[in-house]
Amino acid sequence: MAVFFQSLISGILIGGVYALIGIGLTIIFGVMRIINFAHGDLLMVGMYLTYFLFTLLHIDPFVSIIVTIPLMFLYGAFLQKFFINRVLDALPQNQILLTIGLGLVMSNTVMLAFTSDYRILTTTYSSSSFNVFGLSISTPLLISFAITIVITAILYWFLYRTDTGQAIRATAQDRGAAQLMGINVKRMSIIAFGLGASLAGTAGALIAPTYYIFPQVGSVFTLKAFVITVLGGMGSIVGATLGGVLIGIVESVGGVYIGSGWKDVIVFVVFLLVLLFKPSGLLGTSKD
């Protein structure tokens, strides 16, 4: 039983970080209907940013997100403005290939610049934990979970309470109608991709103290992001949050009871089932 609760709690905590990755992807998808294959690579860029802020300027990873978020936003906006905006009306497979190409460029540029060495970011609390009812809880994961909640709340406020946020949501609901209403769709796309990138970057920053960093680290997370996004309902932020936590739990608990090798199979089977029976996702309403 202890094993069960132990895996449940670590699943929930790691799920928080997954949620951030998923939310970023879901915003991009919601607004542009583009599947961003470079999402994991954005996360990787965020990791490297965090790593260098920490090793060169001695800024704590959890504090450095104040720098990472705006930088990644600008980077995402740049990518959108100069690359992705140009294929908004292109065939979907061209959009996919463009993001794959961008991802390759990112990971290989980083490799040339910093070699493909593994980098480990060690903080004083990287492997610290505390006990609650005999269960060990990782301190850095708990902090990152808390930060995830705060960021999600702010995002909500932004999307529901501000004009720009409303415009983004309108674009996500119906691109054509939004355009007719006088919403600058291209600008909204830029903001959306910026947001997506900064969320991916933040996830990278949050995971950096407990994980390791290398140029190809993104691919694992790209696939995970897809699963989370679909699970929650493409375009739904609450959905992505829940989807992230759910995937965290499925991986963690499934790893124990079905075998850690099989857990990927379970995750993807769950993913397919959701796609089939509720293609709009657990909480999604938008149709395509």
Partner: peptide
Amino acid sequence: GSPDYRSTLA
């Protein structure tokens, strides 16, 4: 490549 091996280690 998974970030979480806690359940397996438990």
